[in-house]
Every structure is written in structure tokens, then in C-alpha cells.
Nucleic acid binder design. Structure first.
Lengths: 228, 228
DNA sequence: TCTTAAATTTAGCCTTGCCTAATCTTATAT
DNA sequence: ATATAAGATTAGGCAAGGCTAAATTTAAGA
């Protein structure tokens, strides 16, 4: 009755919150906590409480005091729109502008808020409509659907399994480098030789490059799926 | 004594003001008026007065009440940094993403505030360090120098002159299309057949495509330089 | 020169987002 | 069952940037 155009896209701040809620809720299905979102966005918890209330008024999250927030359908769509942009941009930066793995995330984080849907479409076209970014993460479709993810951390693998690397966590630059230097990148096939309970070390064999022993932190950062 | 890091780059709003002042002062050398900047940015004159005072405190403009603003050296550098980004981005959008002339400006306007210096450098590399954008406007160097512009509007041409189109105004989409459809684009050579004082119509001959009669508004929007 | 219109500035207000400090809730551990 | 710590919320502020309405300055024309 009052708002003529409910349609204009959320501010970049709002988008960052939606993405954070999505990322935190993606695996667990649980509501995102104030503290978790605050940590992810490097802001104070109080600011998050405040924004949660506003996001709810905008119809982007379901929010109950002291219980955290979950995305509504509209919120999820908006989050995935940003994730799609982010991953397409990362792909472009890595494949065409010669960026390193470390530098890519930060740049994409800013750009994803500045590009239009039209740009996103054209960029996807330019890149040949990739379905995964170079980290191995699936790129949401323009319609907001996302491939179901049947990957699991290498730390949960079992000796003897034949695997394919699906992605590596893109949060820690040092690990990205470590993997990158050894060419342990998405798509690569591995065979699990041993998963040692005592210290969490996983020993894998790369069919071309040899045998690697990966400590628990590394094994948790590499995601794999059963080789088909 | 108080500020540790005076170094972080201006907000996108501040950048827009600097660019507007630069564009208004570029030809005339005069100070940019409150009204002019307000019109260019589609905001109220009062907001501009306010910002002029702040820009002066930041050392980005020289400002005197009721007299308008001119860029300081720092302000000019910052404006040119944005112009460089803008023109490189436009070049990319046109040459690699298949954008139309009309759509390019708006998209670049948003992107120029989101990209880093590193991105700008890599994009320039990707594009082969072009010196002009597809409209024919010179692209400022990374160091903040800009080619001297000896072009003039076609409306000031004289019969018999042999010219080369240097650029076309990118403000009016309809004109851009008109020129684009007839392939009257930067780089093209023309010979002036007649400049009619009575109605301002300029008649030019394109060596390949034929003869065109351009009314005064069109002739003012096309910039040319003497063919070398 | 004097009047008046146009441009500019000032004053006062609003929204978005962020902050700190203080207060509440919830959950955990005795 | 209850004390306490951790987490969340409220209250009160602040800065950036925008707006409108009112006051002021400049410039133009009679």
C-alpha cells in the first residue's frame, strides 16, 4: 500500500549478511547465530542483532530473538545470486587475469556487489557457462538452483577408497598455496592408502604425482567425492 | 598528529564528485559549480555545497563559497584513477562481453568503484594496454597523465578539411546508436564537404560508406582532429 | 543604481550501518 | 536446583550522504 517498488536489490551490506547466513546454515541446516555472522563479517554481535531484525522486516530471513536467523526463500535466492556472481568472477580472475588463488577471494568479494545481472549473464557466456569454479565449488544457476553436494572432507575418507578432489576450502591462503603447489586441485584423482586414527594423518596417492601424507588440518580442508 | 593512515581510498561518493568536478572543469579550466555537479550526479545542490566543504577538508578540492570548486593535485590524481578504470572497463565490456554502446557506461560507473589497482593493472594487461577506449577517449596512464586533446567538435570544422573521428560523446544513447549504426566510430576518416552557417548542418564524406548530412546536435557530439 | 531572479549556502532532519556499554537470556556445571 | 558464563539484545551514539525549506549572495536587467 505504501511501497511502489519493493524490487530494487538489497544494499551490499544486506547481501553480505545473507551470504554469511547462507554459508553458516548451508551444512547444518540450523539457524545462523549472531556470533557466527559477526565473526564472519568482522563486525560486532550487536550490529548483527540489529540487522537480523531489519532483514526480517524485509522478508529475507526468519528471525526469533536469541534463536538466530534462517533464510526465507527470497533470502536464499538473493544469497545464491551473490554466490553465483562471486564464483563466476573468481573463475574469470583466475583463468583470464592471472590472479593467484589467494588474491581472488577479496577482489570477488567487492565486485560481486557491483555487477548487474546482465553482466553476470555475459560473463557466464564468456566463460562458457562453467558449473564449478576453480576451487571446485558448484556455481549456482541463474535460476537459483545449486547442485547437491555429496562431497566430504578427506579426513572422513576410508583406506582403499578411490576419490576425486571436489574442492578445497578457500579461507586459508597458506593451505590453498600448499595444495596448489602440489597440484592437488579439483578434478584430480586420489587413492586413499591409510587414515590414521591416532593423529588424523591421511595418506593418499596421486596417480601421477606420487604419495602425500596430509595432517588433520589439511585433510579437513580438502573435500572429495567417491570417484565414479 | 591524529590520523595514522590518511591513505585509504575515498568512498565511491567522493570519487563521483571528483570525477564530476574533473569533467566540468576539463575543457573550461573554470571552477565547477554547485549546480553543475548536482545536475551531473542527480542530487540536490545543497548536498553538493555540503560535500564541497568536506572535499576541501580532505585536501581534494580548492573551494570558496559561492565560487565553486577546482581539483587539487591529489584530487586530480584520484579523479584520473577513476577515469582510467572507467575507460578500461568500458573497453573490456565492449570488446569482450558484447555490450552495446548504450549499456556500457552505466555498468562501468558502478564497477569503477569496486575494482582494485591490481585488477586495473591486470585488466590493462589483458586488453593490451590500450591508449583509447572505444569511444575514442584517451585512457589516463596509471601514473595519472593524460594525453593532450587537440580534438574539436565537427560543428567547428571547415569545408575541405580532412579529419579523423576522435570520439563521440557518450552521454546520449540515441546519438551513440545513430553513429554506431552508420559506423561513424573513432578512427574513421572523413572529408568535410560543406559547413552550412544557416542551419549548422555539416556534410561529410566517408571514404568508404558515402556522404552524410549531420544536423547541428549531431555535429556537436562528434569530435574530430585534423587527419595527419 | 536598484530590483529581482538565479544560484548557493545554512539549518535541521532522515536513513543506513556500524560501535560500545549495559542489560537480559539461555545453557552449563556443580 | 541454582549460580555463572557465554551469547544476544537494547540503549544511546556517531559518521556519511542524502533531502527540503529558509536565508543569503551574486549577477543581470531596467
Amino acid at each position: 500500500m505504501n511501497d511502489v517498488a519493493e524490487t530494487r536489490s538489497p544494499s551490499s551490506s544486506v547481501g553480505d549478511y545473507l551470504k554469511a547466513v547462507w554459508e553458516l546454515g548451508a551444512d547444518s541446516g540450523d539457524a545462523a547465530s549472531t556470533k557466527g555472522v559477526a565473526a564472519r563479517l568482522s563486525i560486532s554481535p550487536a550490529s548483527v542483532s540489529n540487522m537480523f531484525a531489519r532483514l526480517q522486516e524485509m522478508g529475507l530471513v526468519e528471525y526469533e530473538r536469541y534463536r538466530g536467523a534462517t533464510l526465507t526463500e527470497r533470502g536464499r535466492k538473493e544469497a545464491l545470486r551473490l554466490v553465483r556472481r562471486h564464483r563466476l568472477i573468481e573463475t574469470f580472475l583466475l583463468e583470464h587475469l592471472g590472479y593467484d588463488w589467494q588474491e581472488v577471494h577479496q577482489e570477488a568479494e567487492r565486485l560481486e556487489h557491483a555487477v548487474s545481472d546482465d553482466f553476470t549473464w555475459r560473463l557466464a557466456e564468456f566463460l562458457g557457462h562453467p558449473e564449478h569454479d576453480p576451487h571446485g565449488d558448484p556455481i549456482p544457476s541463474a535460476e537459483g538452483t545449486l547442485e547437491v553436494d555429496d562431497s566430504f572432507p578427506l579426513s572422513q575418507a576410508v583406506a582403499g577408497q578411490r576419490l576425486r578432489i571436489s574442492k578445497v576450502r578457500d579461507e586459508d591462503a597458506a593451505m590453498l598455496d600448499y595444495f596448489g603447489d602440489r597440484n592437488l586441485v579439483p578434478g584430480r584423482r586420489l587413492t586413499v592408502r591409510e587414515v590414521r586414527a591416532i593423529d588424523g594423518v591421511v595418506i593418499v596417492e596421486d596417480e601421477e604425482a606420487g604419495v602425500y601424507a596430509l595432517g588433520d588440518p589439511l585433510a579437513r580442508s580438502m573435500f572429495v567425492r567417491l570417484a565414479s
